[in-house]
Structures are given as C-alpha cells and as structure tokens.
Write a protein that binds this DNA or RNA. Structure first.
Lengths: 245, 245
DNA sequence: CCCCGATATTGACCATTGGTCAATATCGGA
DNA sequence: TCCGATATTGACCAATGGTCAATATCGGGG
C-alpha cells in the first residue's frame, strides 16, 4: 500500500470515528447540548481537525443523519424482497421502518432537527444531495410497491396517483412517529407502545386507501411472522399484540 | 383609571407589541436568523426590556407559538358547533385546521421548532403549561367528536379506543402538514396543493377507521359548502377540487 | 542517520449573540 | 421644585461556532 493510499484510509477512519461520536452526542443530547470542543475532546483531536472534515456543525450533523437514513433505505431494500400480496409487501416496508426506529431510538428527533432551523443552508451542497438521494431511495422503494399494487388491482388507481398514495403512507408514518415522541401526547392519548401505534395507523391508512386484502380479510399476524422468519430474523423488537382481527 | 392600572395596561400593550414583532420574525426568518438586539430595535426598546417580559429567547418564542395555538383551538371550537353526522363534524375540525394553516402560512415550522432542540426546558413553567393547555384543548375537541361518533354508531368502537382514533387523526394531519413543507417531497410526490393533500389524507384515515358515511357514500363537497356558509363565512382559502366521488 | 521541504495538526484567537445588572432616566406625589 | 421609587438602558460577560498562523509530524533523499 502506498503512502497516499494509507493516508486516505486513515482520513476515512478518522471521519468514521468523528461521525460515530457525533451520532452518540446527537442521539443522547440533541443538537444544542454539546459543542465542537467537547466532540474534539471525545475523539482526541483538536477542534480545527473536525473542520478539515466538515464545514460546520450542521454539516457534520447532516452527515450523521444521512448515514442513518442510508441504513433505513437499506432496510427498506431488504424489505422489498419480501414476496406475497402487494399489501403484504408494503407491510414489510412498514415493518422495516419500525425495525429502524427500534434499533435507533430517538433518531426521529434528529430527523426533526433537519426540518427546522436553517440547518439545510449551512451544510455542504454535496451532503445535501447525499441526504436527498437517500430520502428519494426510501420514497422510490415505497412507490414501486404502490405502483405494483395498482397494477395488480389490489389498490384502486382511479382516484389517486401512485405518488399521492405514497405520500399518504409516508405522512401517516412520520406523523405517528413524531407525535409518539411527545410525552404529553402519549399521556393524553394513552399511548403505551409507540411502535404498535405507528403500525396500527399504517394499517388504517392502507384500509382507507382500499388496499386489499383489508385488515379484516387477512391474517396479517401470519404475514408478520413470515416476514420475521424470511427477511428480518434478527429483528430486535418484540411484536406487539397484532392489530389484525 | 389609577396610575398602577395604567402601568399594567401599558405593560400589556408592550408585551403585545413585542409578541407581534417576534411572530413576524419567527414566521419570516425562523429561529436562528434574527437576534434579540434586532427585535429590540424593531420595537424601539432596549434588549434588557425584552427580558423584563420573557426569560429567554425560547420563552418568548414559546409565547408566540402558544398564542397561535390558542387561535387554532378557537377555530376548532367554532368548528365544533357544526351540526350533522359525526363524520361531517370531524370534517369541520379538519377544515378549521386548514383554515388555520392558510391564514398562518409556515406556522407549522414554528410548531416543529418546539419539538426539536432543548426549547422546552429553556422556557418558563407557566408558559409551558399554557402551551400544553391549548394543545390539550385541541385534542379534547377532536376527542369529543370521536366519542360521539362511537356513541352514534358511526365509528366502530370495538377495535380501538377513542383516544387511539384521535391520535391517528392528529398524526395523519400533522404528518401531512410537515411533509408538505419539504420542497423535495413536494416535488417528488407531485404535491401541487398542500392543503388539498392534507384534507385528502384526513379523508383516507377516516375511511380507514370505518367512520361512516364513507367518502364514497356521501357528498362531502355539499358538507364543505354548508360548513363555509354556516361556520367559516370568511374563510380565506379556496376550496380545492373536492375528493368526494 | 540526519536534514529539510511538504503536509498535517493544533489551539489561541475572533465574531456573534443570549443574557445580566449597575448606572441612568423617568415618573409622580408632596 | 425636589426626592425617592420605579422603569429602562446598553455596556458588559460567557459561551461557542469557526479561522488560521504557528507548530509538529512525516517521509524521502543524501
């Protein structure tokens, strides 16, 4: 290995180190409750060194978020390989989303952070594009199954475009996750198991879209069981009481 | 009027002035892109004076948000007076929500800001409680109609609690609003009219919940027309093409 | 093994800004 | 008009994201 090759590798390793620690900080303490000095200390480098890798604190955090988003897209991709009725397949994506939420607790707070403030504009164009790309990947994987549902005749295609259907599924999922974070909401709505609530709302939306077989006409707990066996054997979370009738 | 009474009134007027300008700043420039010095300049007082009214920048912004939330709750209350089938009545709340969104464009960004960061803990306990109270008011007004729907037999009550149903409605609405803010999402999902999308997703969720009469079995455009006439005659937004069949 | 130019790393320093408080201005009653 | 009380101010402080001249490290050639 040449010297320059080794340097490139070392640089990449250091970036990895920084990203790993930053992720820990972000998840545990949000965006405000730590500073670049502390992060530098945690990875045993000077503050200036961090800025050799990232243009700003926001840029660094966007990089962390993008890596997590890529993991999610990867899970979506695995879920896409599930076979069966199209509604079973979209359910696999919903499962992947919850698998992600469980293995990255509080990650939705990071996602929220990206939406507020002037985050976006303080990050590098390259990183912005990388994030959008992973986001688009997630959207596309859902969209493909929606289109297939329409082709298969499981999902009505006369009232809504496939894009609108996809948007509805994304919206209900994101909304459920976000509202689940709210302690007051959890209390007042009696949410004991956020994940179960998210999946339930996804089911309701699918029913509302008329995506057959409807919840009442199919044993989706069996689908979940097969899903675990075939695609996510290492799923880290316990299936809650199923919403299937 | 006594001297002390006048002073109280003047103080209240100044607080109003500050809140008004802060709201303009918040909506137009987010949280970061202005500072307390600038706000002080805008209202022709010194920075220190702002801190006689608010404990921190976050406290001030929470106050702004709470006033807006109260306006929303007020709209919900008006909507609650609409008569008809329970699903028509919940539709009135959805209408109110969109009415609010239209007359306060970009307010959802402010709402998002509250969810992220360490906002909450930098605000006064009093203001936190005020905000929660208005939030609870919104929730309760929806919840009342949900319970009535169950009592009336329009909405199944064997599978889900009334609280879970309310949560689902809130989640789909918040999720739709938030995702509508995302320019990239709007583009990729082909969202041309965010408000229409929000209402459509609310309709889908209601259908999924089995809230009768279903979208296909009722002329909800007539409901909307009556709603405008009876409750929101001054509605500032144009009804999009209805989603009713 | 040493030397030197190139490269990598550092942390003192800067600018911004949320927040404080001693100094100052204003007020209102005697 | 004067004085004590109250209201207002803006210079100042501390924290922190970001910069860059100074320093340390590296590695190849003699």
């Amino acid at each position: 290995m040449s010297v320059s090759e080794r340097k490139v590798q070392e640089r990449a390793a250091r970036e990895e180190l920084i990203l790993g620690h930053a992720r820990g900080f972000l998840l545990r303490r949000g965006f405000q409750d730590w500073n670049m000095e502390q992060l530098a200390g945690a990875v045993n480098y000077a503050k200036g060194t961090l800025y050799l890798h990232f243009e700003s604190k926001e840029d660094l955090c966007l990089a962390v978020a993008t890596r997590a988003l890529r993991e999610r897209a990867d899970l979506f991709e695995r879920a896409s390989r599930f076979t069966g009725r199209t509604r079973e397949r979209i359910r696999a994506i919903g499962f992947a989303c919850c698998e992600f939420a469980c293995s990255h607790p509080d990650y939705f707070k990071v996602e929220l952070m990206l939406k507020s403030a002037s985050f976006w504009e303080k990050a590098t164009e390259t990183r912005r594009q990388a994030h959008q790309m992973e986001g688009a990947r997630c959207f596309r994987l859902v969209h493909e199954i929606v289109k297939e549902g329409m082709r298969a005749g499981d999902l009505p295609h006369d009232r809504m475009t496939s894009e609108s259907v996809t948007f509805a599924l994304v919206a209900v999922t994101v909304g459920s996750h976000i509202m689940s974070l709210e302690p007051a909401m959890k209390l007042v709505a009696g949410i004991d198991d956020p994940i179960r609530t998210v999946r339930q709302n996804q089911d309701l939306m699918c029913d509302g879209l008329g995506w057959r077989p409807l919840l009442a006409d199919w044993d989706y707990s069996a689908t979940d069981a097969r899903l675990r066996r075939e695609i996510f054997p290492t799923a880290t979370w316990c299936e809650p009481v199923t919403t299937a009738g």
